[in-house]
Design a protein around this nucleic acid. Sequence first.
RNA 1: GGGCCGGUCGUCUAGCGGUGAGGACGCCGCGCUUACAACGCGGAGAUCGACGGUUCGAAUCCGUCCCGGCCCA
Length: 922
Amino acid sequence: MDRPRGNDGCLDRRAGGVRAARLREGCLLSAPTLPPRFEAKEIEGRWQEAWERREAFLAPQRPQRGVFSLVLPPPNVTGILTLGHMLGDTVMDVLARQHRMQQSPTLWVPGLDHAGLATQVEVRRQLQKEGVSFDELPAEAQLAELVRWKDEHEARIRAQTRAGGFSVDWSRYRYTMDAEAARATREAFVRLYRAGLIYRGERMVNWDPRLKTAVSDLEVTHREEDGVLDYVLYPWADGTPGGVEVATVRPETIFGDVAVAVHPDDPRFHDAIGRNVVIPLTGRTGPVIADSAVDRAFGAGALKITPRNDPLDREIFLRHSELPNPPEILDGSGHLVGDWVPRAYRGLDRDAARKAVRTDLTTERFLLRSEPFRHSVARSERSEAVIEPRLSTQWFVRMGPLAAPVVEAVKRGEIRIHPARWELTFFRWMEGIQDWCISRQIRWGHPIPVDRCRSCGKEVVAVEAPVARPHCGSRELEKDPDVLDTWFTSWLWPFAALGWPEPTADLEHYYPTSVLVTGRDIMFFWVARMMMSGYFFLNTRPFSDIYFTGMLRDERGRRMSKHLGNSPDPLDVIHDRGADTLRFALVFPNPTDEDGPFGGNALDGARNFLTKLWNVVRFALPYVPPGASPPVAAPRLGPGSALENRWLLSRARRTGEEVDAALSAFEPTRAATVLFGFVWHDLADRYVEIAKEALLGRKGETAQREATEVLGFVLERTLRRLHPFVPHVTEELWHALPHEGDLLALAPWPPADEAPLDPVAEIEMEPVLEAIHWLRNLRAEGGLAADRIPRAWIRPSGSEVARVLSAERATIERLAKVRPLTLLRPEEPPPAEVGSRVAPLGECFLERAAATAGNATALERERETLSALLRKTEARLGDGGFRSRAPPEVVREAEAKVADLTARIRRIDEHLKTEGSGARDL
RNA sequence: GGGCCGGUCGUCUAGCGGUGAGGACGCCGCGCUUACAACGCGGAGAUCGACGGUUCGAAUCCGUCCCGGCCCA
């Protein structure tokens, strides 16, 4: 075996040797050398190409066993990917890569969403900046603009996804507006229509007058805003003085009024019910009606009824059939129209109308007073326009029947939500679910697959464009002018992306999918609806687990947004820092399912970790050169093996088990945290430092061989387990070490239990590490020069500890930089002029610089801590209830603790006495 | 107005009935020890939002309140 010389020249030559050996083997994928620092740029592109060349992520057409599949939530073409997308993608990639390594046929379907309204709004805005009015363009030109936008952004989004190293199957890439998606969309519509779950009706919808389209409840946001509440007098129609006082924030809707409603139990209005009032400015009158939906506490207790312009008014109107049905008074763009609006007001937009109405109400003394009023205002999520509730004819999906099986499935545990706390939110929404308005009056979307007969008005709904004639025999068909809500395609995605409604092989083998990872913000828009469609169209869950990621904040805790400029393009971050650094920073240290800060700190931490990993391998390289045989199994250790070897394998075992458990439980951050701690602290800080002597051959050939095997094995397995998180760097390092197979991405996931558990080694390692720690502590406090190797003594607390310390004396001496370390017998007096510590493993003594006197302080502090603890524990034991009610082992533990603390405090007192005399001697 | 989630070292967080409350970042001190200064070693720093209650025992369970955040109306 080659021995390292321990200087840079040697290492470089060795690295050269690696390269030469690799070239001889004809392996072009090999890492040429390991520079002292890890440079992401150099390696990431190379491995991405290698994976692609080997078609590593191409899912088999005919998988033979249990598959793992998932669809990438197709990002909106509205813009480019954000770091938030990268977070979800990273979580998905961790799961996908792990399952692939576990030899499950794995399919991850990438895609793109046309994002109808959102995209149209973006394109409209963009054109507006260029001085072009989207709305005035002919239909074909509008479409051309939309397609151009889509093409540009699609390219960028694909580039971003590639740069992240995400293991999607590009051969299955899908777009929500491709031909197959169009087919699936039509099919879904037709099936629901035939099942009576889609209907067209005149209903109150959320109308966006700026975009001139209906939007769904989910596309409306409510915000507290300052407004004005007007109190208007509706005088008695019979000319008697007075009338009814009505409060409104939308006085311009007065033209659509048909009545005034009051609460039937409101004593203020008992005499008013049934009388008629004048509706100001209209020349019309209307009755005062009673309805218990009226909120008596609001305004003056009376509500004007505008059946076409307010949902509550509509409800009340429908309960009072005697009221006249008014014509439309506000058109799609928010302008006053129709016979009921006096000429003077027609054509005014709603803001101008409100002003004019208020002025005229004042002039004619109908306006009693106006108050500032803070209330919740509904705005369109996409255009920010104030939503106009408007009676309009639209297409709806009946949600009740679709929702029922989904709620049941989640309650049965057939679909699991992670983190589970979101179930509550989910249920609450599902239980109050409203019908879904799916028609949009925009350009960008799938057309509604309905034709209507010009003569008889009958609807023709078919998957194929209709050729058949409706009942009346006319051939004059008119297409429905509307398009479908984007989500009407997206909600089909888990199966539509696999080819539904065609009975494709992918659909057969990869549906239902395994997991869905997405942000909570689209829980209702998308996730819940996919669940409903899954049960309706395929009678199965679309996925078994849902994982909700958190929302990223910047380091000041603000939400990331384009507007604030705190949302960098992931491609730039990858260019600067590397994909692996970004990926690790996204899962560690902040939990992937919480809204945590993300920024330079996290990126630095990830980079530091990768550098550490890089350097551990770099250190190991000379001992486990590429020529060495790959570790096929864990090294077989015996009782005579070095403690650190037994210990490290045992730690590796526990790490593996916890990582696997964390990933199964959808806790990627916990998995990353455990790996981080293992690599940095157990492997690098402890094992490597302790094992250096053996590795260097100073403890003989057998010891060297064993340490080499352990190091090689643990590193190789650790790289495998880390691979899903940081695929490029691990692939690079894996190839630099002895390994079997040609890609780490396809290497098998190591079983955690192949490394032997060794609880004895773990227990024995404790006092060794502790001794090193306390001696270092004394050393730092004792004011010793860096090159000074002081003498040290330990009086162990028990014979077992004494045995271990004695066996590991050389290691302790080396790592604590003391010599010699002398073990004292139980009552053997300590030396003079020393710093001391009373630790659980025993008393530690170290020579110190003559001038320092910090020891007494440290001891006193320690004494105080221990005394406080002792008092607490004694108090607990003194409590009668404790002894009788607590479990016996807890009582015994407390007793042992009291004994231990008492002994240690006594020791400290002894030390302090010596210290006192010593200090006087100074 | 209703609901949900959360308040733990300066910051971000782990722990969710018996702990000397763990870690990371930041901070302080000493060190370029031949894998790593993007590092090593040591140190300081938290009565776990407040008040009650349950319990032999509460950061952990239950109430009330306060403060954040989100969702719905």
